[in-house]
């Protein structure tokens, strides 16, 4: 990948205290499984995002470990119970060691 993928996130920006909201995320990535061969019969080396983490105000909330069976351009959604205002940090960790981070604010009324 020549350009660094940017994680996209969809969630409501405001919530009531105690409300359980859905967080949807998406990142452009081929998720090369390491199981495919190219035209010359050579195995195409594995290169996937192997971990997705979500933290709120620095505290881990949700984590997903992804294997080669996860589809390309991986989508991940989960839920979060809004208690206080703050900021999400979403991190996608690539096989090559790169980390892609996206942040989103949530205001709790």
């Amino acid at each position: 990948m020549s350009t660094k993928p940017i994680g996209k996130v969809r969630l409501q920006s405001q919530a009531k205290a105690g409300e359980i909201i859905e967080v949807k995320t998406l990142i452009a990535h081929e998720m090369e499984s390491g199981q495919r061969k190219d035209a010359s019969g050579q195995v195409i080396p594995r290169k996937i995002i192997n971990r997705f983490t979500a933290a709120f105000n620095g505290k881990p909330v949700f984590e997903a470990e992804w294997y080669p069976s996860v589809s390309s351009n991986p989508y991940q959604s989960f839920f979060f119970k809004a208690v206080e205002s703050g900021e999400f940090a979403f991190t996608w960790k690539d096989d090559d060691g790169s980390e892609y981070v996206t942040k989103s604010k949530l205001t709790v009324a």
Binding site: V61, Y75, F79, K81
Partner: peptide, 11 residues
């Protein structure tokens, strides 16, 4: 903190 143990992905 998730409030609900539910997650969606594509495989």
């Amino acid at each position: 903190a998730c409030g609900k143990a539910s997650a969606s992905a594509r495989m």
